[in-house]
Nucleic acid binder design. Structure first.
Length: 918
RNA sequence: GGGCCCUUAGCUCAGUUGGUCAGAGCACUGCGUUUACACCGCAGGUGUCAUCGGUUCGAGUCCGGUAGGGCCCA
């Protein structure tokens, strides 16, 4: 072998070598001068850097990379940036635990602050042990940690071989991302899509922030029904005469002071006479009406329930639709408010309230129950149940509902026309696989309110408004002061609005800054605008937007995908992308969704290092979009075997064709040798059949990839490649060597027999096609081979087209069936030796090959190659059907095979005479 | 409670519009020191296509029911 081509091929170590080379050559650099028609743009999901990457990420990002590499080879200029989602609550929590700190916005900034420790990963630090620091110090720590995380993420992605343009990374917290988020917000404010409202809001008491509908999840939690006595008020006694105590059942007796009504189903006969009359709440003695509403469930508890402001979202619906008063009792810390709500006025009521004021929900419930029991207002013991309770998906305490001023974006939750328009956008989008569209539609049609975007947190994009401070010192929320777009990004808590001076902050007649930040989705819903340069690079924006592809997980269709559609629809009146490719989950071998803990045991970098990146990519590419896949290291081993096979088969092809000899002197020689070899005519039927089959595969793989079906593309290429290695190479080996002795270097420019030239042309042509077909999935092994005898990168080479391959093959018909028939014949010749338990090198003195009639011509066409590959001296090819007729083949089977079980559609042998070694 | 996906060989999965669709690979067994490859090659058999009905000349394939698994939403 030459020095260029290693004596012993290996897939190990290719990652670092080629990553350096690609970086140096700018192989994946995006050319900004490209036009929209030339560009293929991908809206890659920015991973949350505060989490860790797991095998699921490797899986889905590989899918996207296969698309990127394919499109690049198709000649598109691929716009494939990578972002980091470092904005938001997950980062805050990680910083708290990693550095043992907590943000206290009232504290001053400390220059040169160093946290108590670093690296407290994994364990959570109790709030009491966290050092309180200023907001600016806290944000600096967030930035410091995310920068570290981002380095590690990039290293992993590079090792995996993602062909992103690493000069185009972005962060969702960067100033330019903030500016985009703020500009989009201000545009929305101008159009009325962004608005603020004082309304009941789902509230996480741990994080003390509002939470959006999309961030909710139900969790089954134990609770208990408490049966409480409501005494009739005067009007009820009058109306009903004898109606006594009304018993209701509730899981939240602590909300009794917030009770504003009782509700029953309008058709519930038990309570017909009560509607419109009043009862008095136990302990607090507040008169509340009994009202009918269809959402009341007659079969739950006693069929009549108390409405509190607010116990759950049904309470909110009742409160709104029935226009009930507001009597909140919980504050944003999750504790009972110090002051009793309006309505409680009796000394007994106020005294009872005093007993629970300031308590947590848990303690308040306990105390209320004690009081109810003492006064005989509760019947029996609490009845334990298990019921679904709303949680913030990242929280661990049940959500409360608190009335606060918040910012919203219209998303069709309150506007039927907008809802229809957004459903129509979903119909316009090409979901891969198509059934994922249903998830989008279900979500959009089921929205019950607009998108709440304000968060009472610290690390995020500030809502870019100020408010005038009125003479009484209160903010004038109705008249926000906005910055100009060219001043963005702004931090209203630090920056001063134009027309004001810093000393006017928070004083009457002055201004006050909005303290809330935006939810992280309010920024990440703008990834197309961020990466495409909407704000600051109009030429780039024109060349890349609307984008071609949004790859993402199915779990965030309702959040990321939908919110991106909402923003693009509002700002640009278009879809943000044409296609949405949805990857499935990785499942444990026991078919459960891969858990975080298990995902961490198998670290992605460990996998890549032990199997090789190409092997792991193969495993990922072998799973279809939208389909859950098993975590299967066996599949990675197969991928590794394929990559090894690519290297070894390539070594053979280049050696037997003589290209390796030329490449040994210089790459340029190798290139011209490959050109010279492939320029020779393909004269042999078997060679033509190989190329014809290959042309079919090129067409099938191309069609599959155009359809985002990387699995099919890989499968067809892989199947033919194994036929190429196992059968075709073996068949033409002898012919291609053209009499060269073992180890003898073949001169690719020297004259050779027509048959050898035909074989060599086919081998080198096929190799070039296979390498390019595999390049998107196995970028390292294919690039390695490409470098042995071709200039430039295989990843910038043109995707193969079938026409020239087919043209080279058209001298003889036969195609794939001929190749298959020759392979089958080779197989039965091998079987003779395998069953005789002798080496495949053993020669066959003579043999009869019984061939189904339809294949006879094919086998004859490949006869010389079969004789050579099978080491057969004389072979009689016989029609298998005719052979069944006694005497037609001239003799009875001598080897004892029985004709009556023979199937004339199956190729087989008879009368084999092996040469016994002396 | 509603929606979506899945159930094919021991395992992981293909099976386009109903008609060679009963398939691949892995695993397993046997053989083999081949002028690419031991991180290898060759040769082997394995299935009531979850289940029950229906449509059809014909059903893994289309329709309905049931059971199990997964996910999403109430």
């Amino acid at each position: 072998m030459t020095s260029r081509i290693p004596d012993k091929a290996t897939v190990d170590g290719l990652e670092d070598r080629w990553n350096e080379s690609w970086e140096a050559a700018g192989t994946y650099r995006f050319d900004e001068s490209a036009t929209r028609e030339q560009v293929y743009s991908i809206d890659t999901p920015p991973p949350t850097v505060s989490g860790s990457l797991h095998v699921g990420h490797v899986f889905s990002y590989t899918h996207t990379d296969v698309v990127a590499r394919y499109q690049r080879m198709q000649g598109r200029e691929v716009f494939y940036p990578m972002g980091w989602d470092d904005n938001g609550l997950p980062t805050e929590r990680r910083v708290q635990n990693y550095y043992g700190v907590r943000c206290d916005p009232t504290l001053p900034y400390v220059d040169g602050y160093e946290p108590p420790f670093a690296g407290g990963e994994g364990k959570s630090v109790k709030a009491a042990d966290q050092q309180p620091i200023s907001r600016r110090n806290f944000v600096e720590l967030c930035e410091r940690l995310t920068a570290e995380d981002e380095k590690q993420f990039e290293a992993l992605w590079r090792h995996l071989g993602l062909s992103v343009d690493w000069s185009r990374t972005y962060q969702t917290i960067s100033p330019s991302s903030q500016a985009v988020a703020q500009q989009a917000f201000l545009r929305g404010l101008g159009r009325g899509e962004c608005y603020q409202a004082e309304a009941p809001t789902l509230w996480d008491v741990t994080f003390r922030t509002a939470v959006a509908q999309a961030e909710l999840e139900d969790r089954e939690r134990p609770g208990a029904y408490h049966r409480l006595a409501f005494e009739p008020a005067a009007d009820m006694e009058e109306a009903t005469g004898s109606f006594g105590t009304v018993w209701i059942e509730t899981t939240r007796p602590e909300l009794l002071p917030a009770c504003v009504a009782l509700v029953a189903h309008p058709d519930d006969e038990r309570y017909q006479g009560l509607f419109g009359t009043h009862v008095r709440t136990p302990l607090f003695g507040v008169e509340v009406p009994v009202v009918p509403h269809h959402l009341a469930q007659p079969d739950k508890g006693s069929g009549i329930a108390m409405i509190c402001t607010f116990g759950d979202i049904t309470d909110v619906t009742w409160w709104r639709e029935l226009k009930l008063p507001t009597r909140p009792v919980l504050g944003w810390d999750g504790r009972v408010l110090p002051e009793a709500p309006a309505g409680i006025s009796s000394p007994e009521g106020l005294a009872a309230y005093g007993e629970i004021a300031g308590m947590t929900v848990f303690s308040a419930q306990k105390r209320i129950v004690e009081m109810l029991v003492e006064q005989g207002l509760m019947e029996g013991e609490p009845r334990p149940i298990s019921h679904p309770v709303k949680f913030f998906e990242k929280g661990d305490k049940p959500l409360e509902i608190v009335t606060t001023r918040q910012w919203y974006i219209r998303n069709g939750g309150t506007d039927a026309a907008l809802n229809d328009a957004l459903v129509a956008r979903g119909a316009e989008l090409d979901f891969v696989p198509d059934f994922m569209r249903v998830r989008y539609e279900n979500w959009v049609k089921g929205l019950t309110g607009d998108w709440l975007i304000s968060r009472q947190r610290f690390f995020g994009v500030p809502i870019p408004v100020w408010y005038p401070v009125l003479a009484d010192g209160s903010p004038d929320y109705d008249n926000p002061i906005v910055p100009s777009e060219d001043a963005l990004p702004v931090d209203p808590s630090a920056d001063v609005p134009s027309g004001y001076t810093a000393d006017q902050r928070d004083v009457p007649g002055g201004f006050t800054g909005e303290k809330d930040i935006m939810d992280t989705w309010a920024t990440s819903s703008l990834t197309p605008q961020i990466v495409c340069g909407w704000r600051d690079n109009p030429a780039l924006f024109a060349a890349t937007f609307p984008m071609d592809l949004r790859p993402q997980g199915q779990d965030i269709i309702r959040t990321w995908l939908f919110s991106t559609v909402v923003r693009s629809h509002a700002e640009h009146g278009t879809l943000p992308w044409k296609h949405a490719a949805i990857s499935g989950w990785i499942l444990d071998p026991d078919r459960k969704k891969m858990s975080k803990s298990k995902g961490n045991v198998v670290t992605p970098m460990g996998l890549l290092e032990s199997h090789g990146s190409d092997a792991v990519r193969y495993w990922a590419a072998a799973a279809r979009l939208g389909t859950d896949a098993a975590f299967d290291e066996g599949q990675m081993k197969i991928g590794r075997r394929l990559a090894m096979k690519v290297l070894n088969a390539s070594k053979f092809v280049l050696g037997a064709s003589g290209v390796a000899t030329a490449a040994g002197s210089s790459l340029a020689e190798g290139v011209s040798a490959a050109a010279a070899v492939t320029a020779k005519p393909v004269t042999e039927a078997l060679d033509a059949a190989m190329l014809s089959a290959l042309a079919d595969v090129v067409d099938a793989a191309t069609a599959a990839l155009d359809n985002y079906d990387h699995t099919k593309a890989l499968e067809v290429a892989e199947t033919l490649f194994w036929t190429f290695c196992d059968d075709y190479l073996e068949l033409v080996k002898t012919r291609a060597y053209d009499g060269a002795a073992p180890g003898e270097a073949i001169d690719p420019f020297a004259p050779c027999s027509e048959g050898a030239a035909s074989a060599r042309a086919t081998l080198v042509t096929a190799l070039g096609v296979f390498l390019r077909l595999f390049a998107p999935v196995l970028p390292f092994a294919t690039e390695e081979v490409w470098s042995w005898y071709q200039e430039g990168s295989v990843h910038r080479a043109a995707w193969p087209v079938s026409a020239p391959v087919r043209a080279a093959a058209d001298s003889t018909s036969g195609g794939a069936p001929l190749l298959a028939a020759a392979g089958e014949a080779l197989s039965v010749l091998r079987k003779v030796k395998s069953e005789a338990k002798v080496s495949q090198r053993t020669e066959i003195e003579s043999i009869d090959l019984l061939v189904p009639e339809a294949k006879v011509a094919f086998v004859r066409a490949a006869e010389p190659d079969l004789l050579a590959a099978g080491r057969v001296r004389t072979m009689q090819i016989v029609d298998a059907v005719a052979a069944l007729e006694p005497g037609v083949d001239g003799e009875a089977p001598e080897d004892g095979s029985v004709d009556e079980i023979a199937d004339p559609t199956v190729m087989r042998t008879e009368n084999a005479a092996l040469v016994t070694e002396a």
